[in-house]
């Protein structure tokens, strides 16, 4: 079993028959299946590399927010909650490791 930490989350890649499962550790010793029956026939090394790439795709980190999207607030009672403006030309969707995200 291969284990790795990504963005403060613990993952394990384990063989399941001819394929591989990725499991995410939850608080209190529990776990959740991120993916099952993946990469059939892959070697352990290949599965570990592909699992890391897949986890980065599922849990992207380091999003640089440019401008609040004031046109589409989420209303909670009278409170306006505004998210990032993903249509802004300078919006950067950062899908690399959080460590390399520019500060």
């Amino acid at each position: 079993m291969d284990k790795f930490t990504y963005n403060d989350m613990e993952f394990a890649v384990a063989a399941a028959g001819q394929a591989w499962d990725i499991v995410r550790a939850l608080p209190g010793g529990a776990s959740a299946v991120v993916g099952t029956g993946l990469f059939p026939g892959a070697t352990a090394t290949d599965a570990a590399a592909r699992a890391r790439a897949l986890v980065k795709a599922i849990y992207p980190v380091g999003v640089k927010i440019v401008g609040p999207d004031v046109a589409h607030p989420n209303m909670i009672g009278g409170l306006r909650i505004v998210g990032p403006d993903v249509t802004h030309p300078n919006f950067i969707y950062w899908d690399k490791d959080s460590v390399s995200c520019p500060k």
């Binding site: 394929a19 959740a32 299946v33 991120v34 993916g35 099952t36 029956g37 993946l38 897949l54 599922i58």
Partner: peptide
């Protein structure tokens, strides 16, 4: 015994 991923 199926194959799946979950994405939030």
């Amino acid at each position: 015994g199926g194959e799946a991923i979950g994405v939030q």
